[in-house]
Computed example of a mutant assay.
Amino acid sequence: MEKTGKQLLTKLRDQWRNNPLFSTGMALLVMVIVQTVALSMNTGFSSFGEWAQSWLQNWISLLRGNAGIGIIALSMTFVIISGGIDLSVGSVYVTVGAFIMVVLNTGGPLAGLGGIPAILIGLIGAVVLGSLLGEGNGLLISNGRMPPFIATLGSMQILRSVTQYFMKAQRTELPEAYKSIARLEIGGQQLMPILYWGLLAAAMYVISKKTTFGRYVFAIGSNERTTRLSGVNVRAVKRRVYALTGFLVAIAAIIQTSRIGSMDYASAGSGFEMDAIASVIVGGTSMSGGRGSIVGTVFGTLIVAVMNNLLNLIGVDPYLSAAFKGAIIIGAVLLQRKDKS
């Protein structure tokens, strides 16, 4: 019996050290348990049913509120696995959001079409714009041979500045039909953002595991020179990675503008790049590229979301939440370095 227990502990320790998905999943489980205890202590409940309803509502709100970041983190996973980084996702988000607000404004250019046709045109325009902005980053990095950090940092500054300049005097109102994209209720709850996140995560998982493009992304992150010598068009793959990022950021912008019904051009998307990177790194994706998973990123997003929720439940000052997030990132990177030693 004692020998069996030691073998089990050894196996669990090996899994923790060598399987990032296992360690991330265990960390998430521990945080959920702590969060559940904090929720129970934070509010008095007269019955188990009342507690269960409060717990479920808390989780629905948590998932719905983090769906946008979760979707952006999915695309950031591909970027980091390929050995890159994208600091412009927050600015692409606000640019696409501004486009939606202007094009679908009740007094805007598509108002004459009315209803579904106008919304469809606006949605297509938004995802095309996001993809083109991402493709622009990809061109700077692949064809312009610019470091991803510099290229996307420049894009971040340009896009946010230009968007704020043109939108400073705009007053827009979205049609109610558009708002139903995210506000449509299922069982009395607004679950659509969560469903969109889940469907996109499943699609990205299939792309990463079952497609040639996905294999090329991992190969480039592992050894770009060898991948190029094997005949892979590395430049084209990189452009597609950043175009895919722009596409998913546009979808996140669509969901969030539909859910909220407006956009603050001064602060919308601010910090999204750090939140997405944190989710990806905490989920076990290596900053040096070549290793990572979509499932790990979903777990990482949930860990960061649960941490923020837990800090709120126990009354930690909101100004300190970024410090805890930074500590988690540093810890995750240190664990990665330990795995390689």
Rank of each mutant, 00 (worst) to 15 (best):
E2F: 15
K3P: 04
K3R: 12
G5M: 11
K6T: 02
K6R: 09
L8C: 04
L9K: 13
T10K: 12
D14K: 15
R17H: 04
L21D: 02
T24C: 14
V34M: 09
Q35C: 13
Q35F: 12
T36C: 10
V37H: 01
V37G: 06
L39W: 04
L39K: 05
T43G: 08
T43Q: 14
S46K: 15
S46Y: 09
S47A: 08
E50H: 09
W51D: 00
A52R: 09
W55R: 03
W55L: 14
L56K: 09
N58E: 03
W59M: 14
I60V: 13
A67I: 07
A73E: 08
S75Y: 04
M76Q: 09
V79I: 14
G83H: 10
G83S: 10
I85G: 05
V89A: 08
G90F: 01
S91G: 11
I100S: 00
V103Q: 07
G114E: 01
A118E: 01
L123Q: 12
A126H: 06
V128M: 09
G130T: 06
L132K: 10
N137P: 10
L140S: 04
N143H: 09
P147W: 03
P148T: 07
P148N: 05
F149S: 11
A151L: 10
A151Q: 02
L159M: 15
L159R: 01
Q164G: 13
M167V: 06
K168N: 13
A169D: 14
L174W: 00
A177Q: 05
K179W: 05
I181P: 06
A182I: 07
I186Q: 02
G188D: 09
G188H: 12
G188N: 11
Q189E: 11
Q189P: 12
Q190D: 14
L195E: 01
A202V: 09
A203N: 13
M204Y: 04
Y205F: 13
S208M: 14
T211K: 05
T212G: 15
T212P: 15
F213N: 03
F218E: 04
F218G: 06
A219F: 09
G221M: 04
T226L: 14
V237A: 05
K238W: 01
R239W: 03
V241G: 09
Y242E: 00
Y242V: 05
G246I: 06
V249Q: 06
A250P: 15
A253M: 05
Q256I: 10
R259V: 02
R259I: 00
Y265Q: 07
S267N: 15
G269W: 00
F272V: 03
D275L: 15
G284H: 02
S286G: 08
S288D: 10
G290E: 02
R291L: 10
G296F: 12
G296W: 12
T297P: 15
T301C: 10
A305Y: 03
I314A: 04
V316Y: 01
L320I: 10
A322W: 11
A323E: 04
F324P: 13
K325S: 10
K325A: 02
I329Y: 05
A332R: 08
A332P: 10
V333N: 06
R337L: 08
D339R: 07
S341Y: 01
